Amino acid sequence: MPSEIITGYVEIDGLRAYKASPTAAAGDRPATGMLVLPMVTGIGEQVREWADTIARSTGNVAVAWDTWHGRSSDDTGFDELRVLSQQLEDEVAIQEQDRLLRHMREELGLTSIGVVGWCLGGRYALILGGRNPDLVNVIAFHPTVTMGETAEAVDAVAHAGMTEAPVFMAYPGKDSIVPLESFLALQQALQSRHQAPTIIQLYPEAKHGFSDKRRHNEEVNESAYRLSWPQALEFMKATTGHPGPGAE
């Protein structure tokens, strides 16, 4: 049976976030959670659905970063959101994400935390993995990592190679934003690690952002999502140590 969850917007260290959590802990198992890093939509309907699914299906507390501080695809056009994404500063964004992680550890008492992100959030997930050795997993769907990152940008490829946690990455072969050379660089960086496993999934015909239901009018995208998302949820359960609701 699906687990009941509690959802809603919360304020964390001066930041707005979206939180989805199971209604009750499963016995004396360690408290576990996932930091959710949105795509350009911010914490719009799609991202909230993913956070809800994580809480309901895996038993993890899901806390979603509010990328645009109250704005999202629910009330803001995509052209405007793309402009905001171009203005986003890495160090400012990472500082906010670190504040959420600190809250999850210190205030929520979560002892096992991973991170999942899509597109720009997938890139930040890889960066956080390199900066936070205590994360238990890093999951990146079609991360927006290009080889033309500016000198001011944090090097996501280098951070991927420093990540100590198990990594799950899904890449679309027909990505029009992230070139193949970026995927190959990420693949090499991740597979050069000796301390943790790597799962890399390549969907040759899928396109950038294939997880977004707005793109599921194309079967190649819907199919890639249908295959990858359930596996990512199982990866969360396996790496956080939470077997999911209803497990003995």
Rank of each mutant, 00 (worst) to 15 (best):
E45L: 12
M34F: 07
L126A: 04
A125Q: 03
E107W: 14
R82Q: 13
R215A: 00
Q195P: 10
F235S: 03
I12M: 08
Q97W: 04
T198Y: 00
H216F: 00
T239M: 12
E49V: 09
Y203S: 01
T41C: 11
G246K: 09
Q191F: 13
F183P: 05
P133Q: 08
P166L: 08
S211N: 14
H103F: 14
L81S: 05
T58R: 01
T53C: 11
R105C: 05
P197R: 03
N221G: 07
S57C: 10
P179Y: 10
A55S: 04
D79M: 13
A158I: 10
T7S: 13
A153G: 02
Y171R: 05
A31Q: 10
L88S: 10
T163Q: 05
E49P: 06
L84H: 08
V154N: 04
M39G: 15
S211F: 15
G246F: 09
V40K: 05
V145K: 06
R123A: 03
E45C: 09
K237Q: 08
A158Q: 12
G109E: 03
I139A: 04
I94V: 15
A55V: 08
D155M: 08
Q191K: 14
S3M: 02
T23H: 12
M39Y: 15
K19H: 09
R226W: 03
L227W: 11
H142M: 06
I5C: 08
A151Q: 13
P166Y: 01
L101D: 07
G59R: 01
G246I: 08
R29Q: 13
A247H: 06
I177K: 06
M1D: 01
A93Y: 03
A25E: 10
Q46C: 08
A20F: 02
S176W: 10
W50V: 15
G173T: 06
Q95Y: 08
N137G: 07
C119Y: 08
V167P: 06
A165T: 07
V136M: 10
P179E: 11
H208V: 09
S112A: 14
H142D: 01
M34D: 01
P179H: 09
D175H: 05
A160L: 07
P143D: 00
H242P: 02
V178W: 05
R105M: 05
D134K: 14
A247V: 04
A165N: 00
P245N: 03
L184S: 10
H142R: 11
E218I: 04
E164A: 15
R226H: 07
H208K: 06
D175A: 00
D79G: 13
L202E: 11
D75Y: 01
V92R: 09
Q231D: 12
V157C: 00
R48T: 03
E4G: 13
D52S: 11
Q195R: 11
S182Q: 07
Q87F: 07
Q87V: 04
E181T: 12
G77H: 07
P133K: 07
V83G: 07
P22N: 08
F78Q: 10
I43V: 15
D98Q: 15
Q195D: 15
T7N: 09
D75Q: 06
S182E: 01
L190R: 06
Q97S: 08
A55R: 02
G129M: 04
V47K: 00
W118G: 02
I5Q: 06
V83Y: 11
W68S: 02
Q187W: 11
A151N: 13
G33S: 06
H69Q: 14
R56N: 03
I139Y: 01
A55L: 07
S223K: 02
Q195N: 15
T41R: 02
